[in-house]
Nucleic acid binder design. Structure first.
Lengths: 211, 211
DNA sequence: TCGTGTGAACGAATTCACAGCG
DNA sequence: CGCTGTGAATTCGTTCACACGA
């Protein structure tokens, strides 16, 4: 197997897409897929698909394509999905609740084992099995439950403090929905999701469309 | 003013970031910012900032930097935020509700003027001023209220049908939260936000960290 | 002098195009 | 023959480095 050195972020995201497509092909009973099949689904070129996959070795059969099941398993492994990941949701507002209850979650191996808020009215309430804890207890709980990934859905003002507490508790990765640029040390993986930025990239596109 | 030809998607997103930073600098009473100031906030290089801004003309003063207010206004204009945009939320579940109530929204010039669902229990309910309509009426309502942007928060299974209806109704842009790749014609601007893909890019990073 | 604006150099990612294997 | 795997060519984005203006 090839040594994984530097894979671009966009290539990794494409792997996630391929995974969805493979599920669909598998569900449809297809045993093999060509790079062209996957490319068509993803709206990209077949060369792109082959290049992406070739970074991780070669499992395609020339003249035939890739075996759906095996390729799927391989991508699951590459993405690190062959295990469950323990997740905390920090900020038990509407967005936190929406993400928590999202089913695809559990199915992909993400297990939300803690939720936090500062609102006394929310602390102690339950989301299914999970009791909402006080953010003040964050470090203790994160450590005790060996949580590796945190999803931050607090208001902007609280986000950096929460991030600091998470870092202090030894979190490995943060997925940040708060509209604020977070400062975290390099060893903590950070990803931002911003509704505002997505919308603004839409309005930019709409404003500067072909003329 | 310079002709806007091809600006990379990442450059546009950085403009959104600069806008946030400028708000902060303005709130702090700072009258001018240098590319270095902005770069520091964004964790990028000053050359990147200057290059990004230079695509749209030059308003910096050498030796001084950029006037905060004027630059802010300019970026607002570039991103197409100098007007309000009429938005519909399709899918009145928890996620739709969370996005709807997000305040930063209105402040940035996005006005949610319609919400849709298929659930009879939800249709007719109100979100503030907005009455939840039946998805069956989508085309009519989108046209009548001159909605340009749709935020799709339906389950994956329903997303493509909704997208088709939106396209038929003449929507200009779709922000898709459903975990499904949508097919839309080229003239419709589409952007995907996927919790799953973000999480998987995190687990990839965690799995392949420095060794 | 300081910091912008920008061509030139560089580096990264995508696409091309084809040899080679099933 | 069909489709993979991959170097080579190309395109695209970022960084460098410096001339020039405030």
């Amino acid at each position: 197997m090839k040594r994984i050195t530097k894979i671009s972020d966009s290539a990794v995201r494409r792997l996630s897409h391929y995974l969805r497509f493979l599920d669909e092909f598998e569900a449809a009973g297809q045993r093999t897929v060509s790079s062209g099949d996957l490319a068509e689904r993803g709206g990209i070129t077949s060369a792109q698909v082959r290049k992406d996959l070739s970074h991780f070795g070669s499992f395609g059969k020339r003249g035939t394509g890739y075996p759906v099941g095996a390729l799927r398993e391989r991508i699951v492994e590459i993405l690190g999905l062959g295990r469950t990941w323990r997740v905390a949701v920090v900020g038990a507002g509407k967005l936190g609740a929406a993400l928590f209850q999202y089913g695809g979650f559990r199915r992909q191996g993400f297990e939300v084992v803690a939720a936090f808020d500062t609102d006394p009215a929310k602390i102690g309430r339950r989301w299914g099995e999970v009791v909402i804890d006080d953010v003040a207890d964050l470090a203790r709980v994160v450590r005790k439950r060996q949580i590796e990934i945190a999803i931050v859905t607090t208001p902007a003002e609280a986000a950096q403090d929460v991030a600091d507490a998470l870092v202090a508790a030894g979190i490995a990765a943060i997925l940040n929905f708060a509209p604020r640029k977070l400062a975290v040390p390099l060893e903590v993986t950070l990803r931002d999701v911003s509704l505002t930025i997505e919308l603004e990239s839409l309005t930019f596109a709409l404003t500067h469309r072909e003329r």
